[in-house]
């Protein structure tokens, strides 16, 4: 779905979007209740491998996708490393206080965020939005008015981005594209937001009217152009995920990288 980067359709693309979402989302909760960094490191390795092998994207692009992750890894782990509580002091300078405990806790947090990011990327890169919402209507009984609103909004995305650029140019020409100070910056944001939002509101209204004029109602039962079903690939995904989770968990106990078992 992203910016027309070429890819091969792999079995991950063939999975049911709703099923994929329902497999990925609970991982958030599971990960939040894991406090052993060894487990998270193993899972990160496992799911990164799954992603790299079966996302269908070229390695060059995959590595490019991972660049921002490095930033969030550092950004999420740093405050905890520098300012977290702990007993075994490694380094102290003014307010900065690095301890063994805070260090591992920080790294653990970094891996957590990394895992969430990998799940997000894996989902986004292997799911077509149109099929996601068709699937949500068919498998999760999402009301059509919500599904089609999302699809209409996604269709407007490139138009809105283009409009943003035009507004930017127009303000530049009138020398109104810069502002000083916090208040000025907020005023500037308004200056961009007003034309974009008002245009979007009008367009949304018109599209809604046009949709109803084309016979859209919530009352009648509708047929679907795309029939999205569950299939064997969903079972594959389920099994693969179970294996990675179980093996990663077991190996963390059997062959730990670090001695700490609980970072709290």
């Amino acid at each position: 779905m992203r910016w027309n980067i070429e890819y091969k359709e792999t079995w991950l693309h063939q999975t049911n979007p709703t099923a994929k979402l329902l497999l990925f989302l609970p991982m958030f909760v599971v990960i939040v209740f894991v406090h052993n960094p060894n487990v998270l490191i193993n899972w990160t390795i496992g799911f990164t491998a799954l992603f790299m092998l079966f996302s269908g994207y070229r390695m060059k692009h995959v590595l490019l996708f991972f660049v921002p992750f490095l930033f969030i890894f550092i950004s999420t782990s740093s405050s905890m490393i520098l300012f977290g509580k702990g007993e075994t002091t490694w380094f102290r300078l003014g307010l900065i206080h690095i301890t063994e405990e805070s260090f591992y806790r920080g790294v653990h947090l970094g891996f957590r965020t990394l895992l969430f990011a990998i799940f997000g990327l894996m989902f986004a890169l292997t799911t077509k939005p149109v099929l996601l919402f068709y699937s949500l209507m068919q498998q999760a009984k999402l009301k059509p008015k919500y599904a089609y609103s999302f699809l209409a909004a996604i269709r407007l995305l490139p138009i809105m981005l283009e409009e943003f650029q035009t507004v930017h140019q127009a303000l530049k020409v009138r020398r109104a594209a810069k502002a000083k100070g916090f208040r000025g910056k907020l005023e500037l944001m308004k200056r961009y937001a007003i034309p974009l939002l008002s245009q979007s509101i009008r367009r949304a209204q018109r599209i809604a009217v046009a949709m109803e004029a084309k016979g859209f109602t919530s009352e009648r039962t509708r047929t679907f152009y795309y029939e999205v079903t569950l299939g064997k690939y969903d079972v594959y995904l389920f099994v693969v995920m179970c294996v990675i989770v179980a093996v990663g968990y077991y190996m963390a106990g059997a062959l730990p990288y670090v001695a700490i078992k609980d970072v709290r």
Binding site: A152, R202, M211, F216, R222, T223, F224, Y225
Partner: peptide, 19 residues
């Protein structure tokens, strides 16, 4: 630009047929 809700030609036509 303000009378379609789907990204592709066939999907937009299909939207009416679904209705």
């Amino acid at each position: 630009d303000a009378q379609f809700c789907m990204p592709y030609v066939d999907e937009e036509m299909a939207f009416v047929l679904e209705n």
